[in-house]
Amino acid sequence: MKLFWIVILWISETFTGLIRNMWGNATAVLLTVACLTLFSVSYVVGLNATYFSKTLDNKIEIRVDIKDDVTTYKKYEKKILNLKGVSDIQFVSKETAYKKMEKEMADNAEVLHAVGENPFQAQFIVRVDNPSQIDGIVTQIKALHIHEDVQYGKEYVEKLISFTKTIQRIGYAVTVLAGIFTIYIVTNVIKYNIDKRQDELKIKHLTGAGMLTIRLPFILEALVITLFAGVCVYELFVWGYGKVEEIIRDMITYAPLLPKEGVLNDLFFPLLIISLGIGLLGSFISTQRFIAKY
């Protein structure tokens, strides 16, 4: 029963403190929202970058344009398929390549007809298990000397992934800086709240209130501030992610973006932990430094 009344006291003191310094607390909420938004954007960019690279990994293929004098396709098809790391191979004859292009060009097929002779090479489309092995496989295919040309999008993909990861890293660095700044703000807001209640604290000390009873309302205040900020940011993503997704899809139809539900699920716990972490750390520093100990 005693614990019940103590908890009621903590809650009432927490909300009294929040109301007493309403503007200071509102500022802290806004700054925490800014910090958590930066973190969440970086995190979601990271999630999408990973998803994007996985999607591309599955789509990476090597296109081998076969020399016209090579006729023993089956033999080479088998050889390539037996190479370590090759998951699949598909032979596309000159005719199939021509028909495919004709179909893709549809109304503009006349341009192709104007070329006259079939300009396409027979091709092997080779798929690999792991994009990191692609260099080795390409070297081995080239060693067969059946190729007119070998093309694969590895460099492009790598550049894209590296670019996305750089953005993600910059995002995390900014988040860390913003996090430190937010902890500083929370620390100062709680310091201000402590200063405002010095009279009460003096009496609490004098009459033997426990240190936990003295400190907890301030810790709870900070947690309410940062958790509220966390909820705001989450709601911002609930509302905004779908809209951003829509805009990107308008620009790039097949953009590999994670669905909203998945992003929100993945974001929930990291956001919760960061919110709690900032609140706990900020209030811990304040209560340690600015509340006198027994």
Binding site: M1, K2, F4, W5, L9, I203, G208, T213
Partner: peptide, 11 residues
């Protein structure tokens, strides 16, 4: 009353 409340006493 403030003192007793801090000690978790009932209202």
């Amino acid at each position: 009353a403030f003192v007793l409340k801090q000690q978790g006493k009932s209202p």
